[in-house]
């Protein structure tokens, strides 16, 4: 049933999917989302904030389903997805890092570590499945 040939990539994608599902369910549930923000030292979110957090939660769920699709297909069929997800993970990581640095000090929070691990994870999958950016562009 799982068509992705590389076992390490399968394990990494499963872990990322689980982590993504955890965050997705946290963001779509108002109680969990409020507790999450409070744990980061942020004020209690209003309805608008909860709405946008929920929106992100649904995007996370969608990406999790995308990961499962990537598990069920050969790597050659998922290259564009894996490249795109690596870029998304990199931008997310830079954003979290930037937010941290903007405060004035680097706080090694669970969110930062999670984003970093996701970026490393997708990069490893990308490399191990020979889906490196540029590899299949004729002009490079």
């Amino acid at each position: 049933m799982i068509k992705l040939e590389d076992r390490v990539s399968v394990v990494i994608l499963c872990l990322i999917t689980f982590m993504g599902t955890f965050y997705a369910l946290m963001m779509v549930n108002a109680n969990f989302a409020s507790a999450f923000l409070e744990s980061l030292g942020r004020p209690t979110p209003n309805e608008d904030t909860l709405f946008w957090m929920g929106w992100w939660g649904y995007i996370y769920l969608g990406l999790g389903i995308g990961n499962i699709m990537a598990l069920l297909a050969p790597a050659s069929d998922s290259r564009v997805f894996l490249r795109a997800m690596t870029m998304v993970a990199m931008i997310s990581f830079i954003r979290v890092l930037g937010n941290n640095l903007a405060i004035g000090e680097l706080d090694i929070s669970p969110t930062l570590i999670a984003q970093f691990l996701v970026l490393i994870g997708y990069s490893v999958v990308l490399t191990r499945t020979n889906s490196r950016i540029g590899k299949h562009f004729g002009w490079l």
Partner: peptide, 16 residues
């Protein structure tokens, strides 16, 4: 079971 596990972890993480 995956949804239950993620939800349970969220319950614990949120202190609910």
């Amino acid at each position: 079971s995956t949804m239950f596990m993620c939800t349970m972890l969220n319950f614990y993480a949120s202190g609910s």
